[in-house]
């Protein structure tokens, strides 16, 4: 798991949100934090991947930016201030080459999948659930692509984003 290098991104408590929505907002904030972390790892990876892999990194970056923007918009619609990206994140292992960069990208996608699956389980809001299942699905697909690029097996997990 990629974690913020500085203090945890809990963000300010939001007084404008109806109490019933706070669970939804908190869960979506955690998903947004995972999206920020994924974008940071993609930026880091650009320094280590070959020209062959670079287009996939660029494509993933565009997809995560779009998801981040949609998530921030949704949070503002709920009266919340979206959490900001951290300046840097601690990686579980040093990134020194393409293999370690792709391993980190796979981890970041798994973290994104877990955050969005959790969001589904913290909300009854249908718009949030729709965004969450789309985001979870895309993260699982990208994680599979990165595993294939890295040549690791198995390529899939039966329950992407599931705890444990």
């Amino acid at each position: 798991m990629t974690t913020p290098a500085s203090s945890p991104p809990n963000g300010p408590p939001n007084a404008t949100v109806a109490p019933g929505d706070q669970g939804t907002v908190d869960a979506v904030q955690r998903a947004l934090a995972a999206e920020h972390a994924a974008l940071w790892t993609l930026q880091l990876a650009t320094a280590f991947v070959t020209d062959e892999v670079a287009p996939a990194v660029a494509e993933a970056t565009g997809a995560h930016r779009a998801r981040r923007d949609a998530t921030e918009l949704l949070l503002r619609d709920h009266g919340a201030v979206p959490v900001a990206a951290e300046p840097a994140y601690a990686t579980p292992a040093p990134v020194t080459d393409q293999a370690s960069a792709i391993a980190l990208l796979t981890t970041a996608e798994s973290d994104v999948a877990a955050a969005w699956r959790s969001a589904i389980e913290y909300t009854d809001d249908q718009a949030v659930r729709t965004l969450a299942v789309d985001s979870l699905t895309d993260a699982a697909v990208r994680a599979t692509r990165w595993r294939r690029t890295a040549g690791t097996a198995p390529l899939t997990v039966p329950f992407p984003g599931a705890p444990g």
Binding site: T123, L136, T137, V141, L155
Partner: peptide
């Protein structure tokens, strides 16, 4: 439309199936 924990299960099943399209 499902209860929360069931929705999470269904979402993971959908995501897994999508990843097999890639494989």
């Amino acid at each position: 439309g499902l209860p929360r924990h069931r929705a999470g299960l269904a979402a993971s099943v959908a995501a897994c199936c999508a990843s097999h399209v890639v494989v």
